[in-house]
Nucleic acid binder design. Structure first.
Lengths: 375, 375
DNA sequence: GTTAGCACTCATTTCTTTCGAGTGCTAATA
DNA sequence: TATTAGCACTCGAAAGAAATGAGTGCTAAC
């Protein structure tokens, strides 16, 4: 009796039978919707696996041994462990394809968001939160930013506008007000010089040496050069700093696992304080890949009993980012992953300059987990 | 026996005696910190009004009759009613002046926020929330926005940048990419024309007629004119639309009155959905005035059992706005009003162009309520 | 290998009881 | 006439006790 041999042991390694898989999947599926421990009887009835509750009880007991499930207390049903979710996400989960209607719905909403003004990423974060009913986060970062072009607009003797165009075609400007007078010729000269020596370089290359030599070359005794250089650095730095948006934190309160205000508050303030979600420094993952971090797989203490689902996008011009949600470990990974993946793909295209909406290709969904088992 | 004559009647109108005022104030003060009904004994001990608990009980009973206090149940202490708070705010409250250290602390933090990039108002909202530990809101609106200056930067035959400077010296830009080629001369010409006929006017004055005549005058067959005009309108419109920021919603969960997740959620999502806080269309109030809306005085159903404290600022150039917090009716009106007032004054100065920090004038605090009793 | 049956466990719900803070009233006091 | 000590009374909240029932593990029969 190979099965009973495992009884009483600590997390036995054994091949998981087909039936066990089915049962585990059924447990997770059920738990996702009810948030209550699921019992053998309910399983026997609902999930159509032709066997009685007693049999299922045996299987459940073994799944507990194997570490996929756990019991809150002796006389309760089973609840998936992090390992159980991992297995579910990696192998068992039936990958959700969005229906055509859903795709269209999503598309039109995405469209609407993107067409409006500037704040693309934060807007999409908002959208993600709405669609999933979980707090959403969006992160975007640029790798190597450089300036493509300088213009300095002479407004009056004491005022000018610096306009700077970056290599990804975003344009930034700043109005500068000086206590001293500048003549238009100087402004022209500076503009030329900056275009000559400050374009195509990253912020670390803007050194005091460079600034000094420019200043001398332009014969600038007023310190204009350093003002402009400072702005250039500021723009480059702010563009290179990854920005994170968290929206819809309050939706956490919808979830039964956050009924405790303290627990909810802890997580919410962690989120809005901009605490890191992914291991800092870790790369963003391949584009169009969805990653799932389940409970203890998260590094941040505050997230250890929540899950994170993120999809990465890549605008092609060096702008990469993530869009994701945070919620209880019990989340509908499948649907959420689909939706996020969709949004990420939409972002990739849209930011990348292409104007076409994400097409009806329901969606290719690549879900990847945190493979490194221990960390 | 004038006092006992009121016994048993419905909300009797009578002059409120000095001692009653003192007691009422003490009740509110105490309730603000404990959030628990306050009883006669505690009052007799703490607040130094030389009389026994029995006397106080009599007074309390009358204050209940007069509508300033209420009892959650027969054997509990007293809790201020909205009317009680109103009275407290209007007459009884001992107006808090910020200490010098506090002023300096606030100043340096405000300074820091304002000196950093663009997002002044949202940043100050964040600051307000931090300082008060309540959700904060900031609203800013401009009355009459006009464009002061147009510049069009020729990038290449298909690309140019529109730079627009508003009458309050903010600068906006947009990169335009065209499918057809434009020559530099045309760009120059358009720039001149726009400066001639589109400056100093509001968005409603940008009519199709005006656009058409400009287009004809510039001999523009490519539709450039309308692109630029559209951008101008967009900028004007977006600038004129009052923008609201709500930050720190999660701090609501600190408050015992929002321990119920549903209640908290209701309010939080109302706040982050951008629901109006002040009666829509109502003017923002005089500058440097702090307004308090207590419980039922709010018009939004969702706010009927919360209070709102807002201070208004005025940058002088037509930019006006509010900065405020939302919380339980039991809030420390006095301190919060001081802090908000401080921030508002800081904003007024800073946005108004003056560079000096708010000085050590601890602060003049004008608190005004919702005087119209019924609405 | 599966399943019906049954005793057992234990969180949850419901009902009681206890406890005490706080009241209102009365009668004595200043 | 205003204040106060004293006391019975009220009623929510906390603590304890009992009932409930979902779900289990195990055994023995199929």
């Amino acid at each position: 009796m190979p099965a009973s041999a495992s009884r009483g042991c600590e997390r036995v390694q054994m091949e998981i039978s087909e039936r066990k898989k089915k049962i585990l999947a059924a447990v997770v599926d059920e738990y996702i919707v009810t948030a209550e421990p699921v019992g053998s009887k309910a399983l026997a009835e609902k999930a159509g696996l032709g066997c009685s509750s007693a049999t299922i009880r045996n299987e459940l007991a073994e799944l507990v041994n194997m570490g996929y499930l756990e019991q809150p207390h002796t006389s309760a049903g089973r609840v998936p462990t992090a390992l159980g979710y991992r297995m579910y996400v990696n192998e068992l989960m039936q990958k959700q394809k969005l229906s055509l209607e859903e795709t269209e719905e999503l598309n039109s909403r995405l469209e609407k968001r993107l067409s409006e003004l500037d704040n693309t990423i934060s807007d999409v974060s908002r959208l993600a939160s709405q669609l999933t009913n979980y707090p959403a986060l969006a992160l975007s970062s640029r790798s190597q930013v450089t300036i493509k072009r300088f213009d300095i607009i002479y407004v009056d003797a004491n005022t000018f506008i610096i306009v700077v165009m970056l290599d990804n075609n975003t344009v930034r400007n700043k109005l500068v007000h000086l206590p001293v007078s500048v003549d238009e010729g100087m402004v022209k000269k500076l503009s030329t010089m900056f275009n000559a020596s400050f374009t195509g370089i990253s912020d670390s290359q803007i050194t005091p040496v460079l600034i000094n030599s420019t200043e001398r070359a332009a014969d600038d005794s007023l310190g204009l050069t350093s003002v402009i250089a400072a702005f250039a650095m500021e723009v480059l730095a702010s563009e290179a700093t990854p920005s994170t948006y968290v929206t819809g934190e309050n939706r956490l309160l919808n979830q039964p696992e956050y009924r405790d205000p303290d627990k909810a508050h802890r997580l919410m303030s962690y989120l809005s304080s901009g605490g890191y979600i992914l291991p800092p420094g870790e790369d963003l993952g391949d584009t169009n890949e969805v990653r799932v971090l389940i409970g203890p797989e998260n590094i941040a203490e505050e997230l250890k009993d929540s899950s994170v689902i993120v999809a990465s996008y890549d605008a092609g011009d060096g702008t990469k980012g993530l869009i994701g949600v945070v919620g209880p470990t019990r989340m509908d990974y499948s649907v959420i992953a689909s939706k996020l993946s969709f949004l990420a793909q939409g972002l990739s295209r849209r930011l990348g300059g292409g104007e076409a909406p994400v097409e009806g290709m329901h969606n290719k969904l690549i879900i990847k987990g945190d493979d490194s088992d221990k960390r």
